[in-house]
Design a protein around this nucleic acid. Sequence first.
DNA 1: GCAAAGAATGTAAACGTTTACAGTGTTTTT
DNA 2: AAAAACACTGTAAACGTTTACATTCTTTGC
Lengths: 363, 363
Amino acid sequence: MFFVKHYKAGRFSYHASLTYRQEELMVSIKDVARLAGVSIATVSRALAEPDKVRPNTRDKVLAAVKQSGYVTNSLARSFRTNRNHSVVVLVPDITNSFFSNIIQGIEEVARANGYRILLGDMQNDPANARAYGDLCAQRQADGLICLGRTIPFAYNRSRKTLDPKWPPLVMACEYDDRIAIPGVRIDNERAALDGVRYLGEQGHRRIAYINGPQDSPLCRDRLKGYRKGMAELGLRKTSDLLFGGDFSLDSGAQAARALLQLKSLPTAIFAANDAMAIGALQVLKQRGVRVPDDLSLLGFDDIKFAAYCDPPLTTIAQPRRQIGALSMQIMLDILAGRDGSGGSGESRVLPHELVLRESVARV
Amino acid sequence: MFFVKHYKAGRFSYHASLTYRQEELMVSIKDVARLAGVSIATVSRALAEPDKVRPNTRDKVLAAVKQSGYVTNSLARSFRTNRNHSVVVLVPDITNSFFSNIIQGIEEVARANGYRILLGDMQNDPANARAYGDLCAQRQADGLICLGRTIPFAYNRSRKTLDPKWPPLVMACEYDDRIAIPGVRIDNERAALDGVRYLGEQGHRRIAYINGPQDSPLCRDRLKGYRKGMAELGLRKTSDLLFGGDFSLDSGAQAARALLQLKSLPTAIFAANDAMAIGALQVLKQRGVRVPDDLSLLGFDDIKFAAYCDPPLTTIAQPRRQIGALSMQIMLDILAGRDGSGGSGESRVLPHELVLRESVARV
DNA sequence: GCAAAGAATGTAAACGTTTACAGTGTTTTT
DNA sequence: AAAAACACTGTAAACGTTTACATTCTTTGC
């Protein structure tokens, strides 16, 4: 048993009895400095701003780094610079595959810029958001990207701004019009409108709509687009064709069951997302309703499984990866003090796309 | 313009021109101490070990905390204690929904214990693993949970141990028999065997198998189970019934196309995961092969969409959430120096379950 | 060759905690 | 009532960086 100074915790030792001790091997900038015969300031500079140091010295330092196996203690650096180089990504439900590609886009840009992402899974419970907001307050993260509609920070209603004590916030997909926050999304109203128009072109008039969560601005926009489209088709009263859902497979199935009770069936169903469309699809098939022969089905999001349904689902695609990537890019801009769309507090709108597969037919 | 000490970076200010400055509001333990009329040590103790401090004093401190809006700078704490309270979760592909529930299980336990998870998406490229391993070396994370088969650390081949300089590692789902690492998984060989036995009970003899990535130990086990089961059915030569895949929907579809070229079709297909089963299913239906009437289909994993296929997929379920939760629990044990299954370097084996739906029929 | 300017390096302070140890009350024991 | 034991609080050092400022070395212009 050897002597270990009390204030050093045995970090990586699995057993107290093990003699391996990470901290014994731990080499700091001081060691490198000694080895290279320079001051610690020079080492720091050689590593962080190589051109501020003479090539000769730089080489000495680099050699010492290599020899000693030094690796920067980023904890110390973060502490000193007050920058963590990590960003919380707040996801309503990690299980929802729709978010995967967005996260991937974020992650990619983050990694390319030396940032990491802290995953915040709300498990669909807004109460969980607060905990992740607090992470930022504790400097655990430099900023937060919000994929859902729940903003974990208090905001100043009258000024439509975040309280200045909160870190940068970027919203992806969703937005909140009570407050000016930079974000990235598609034009959901227009997208839904395009969907209805397409169904209209195929001769559909009675088009049912399976809505998402009512409190989601994004859903309100899609609903608005649906109504607008229906109005264009000359149908102002749509209340009997409207079904509630919550984006889950189950809720889509449930909506389909309710829908099949209608005295006069619609000729098409437009679901506010693919999961609900697929849920509905299953019920329809179970009840012997053929898609698209008896009933057409239009989804939203183009998740991976949409192409593997039977029939493959016609749907409206969002550029998910780009949404994620751009969100992170904006976050980086804000953090660097560059004014991306950051300062403006406006959403960047990316194009959507109608993906034609086989779940919609002419009437 | 007010005076700002040079060494304080304007952290949260979106514009240089803005007067909001987070650091102006920044209150440290020192401020709380002054406000409460005690030393900073007492504040620290009142917060960390409340029972080590007189109730009277504690109240004073707590009041001061509240009044000042103090929140501990976890960056400073992490630096001081050399503990980050975060764990990297290395995922082969975040887009693969199979991993979602595992991550969720991990996340849940982590959060309940004051830990956060750093998401590491390998995007199916092992080269990306290294970067996340390095995070640990830099003290960015206290440990790493590996959901795939790629271990981002060098290990000592002869001693079957990790190099002691690496932080704790736990493997979920996969394992690596070249090295002793704690982990959580199911008995994949037995599970596959059970699958084949079930198909045998239904009268199937010619059972095709769509394999996963060859270099995955988990897949090797499943394959072994399949072979064992086939041997039990009296079929030793299975090479013509074996098809390669990589866990993706596409590879399942491709395998099905190859399979349909066989002179004598099998009566059942067993896929090493649900995604491939669903990919295969689509091809079968396109070619007019009815499932399960003409051909039975058995999957593996029980992902969410398995229940929403047509027909709903019979499959073998893994307790994904528990696998994740237990992995994190083991990690916590190791980090706390408690000897969970941590020290042993053995895998905990959780039970699997056959989920009967409608994709398998009697011959 | 010398002064001035500029570049490279060193010195030392600071970031906000935690914690060993010392010191100061407070209670218990004798 | 004094001594001993104990509980609480304060002092100060330490963690490993970054960086303003001071100092030294090198180059440039004359």
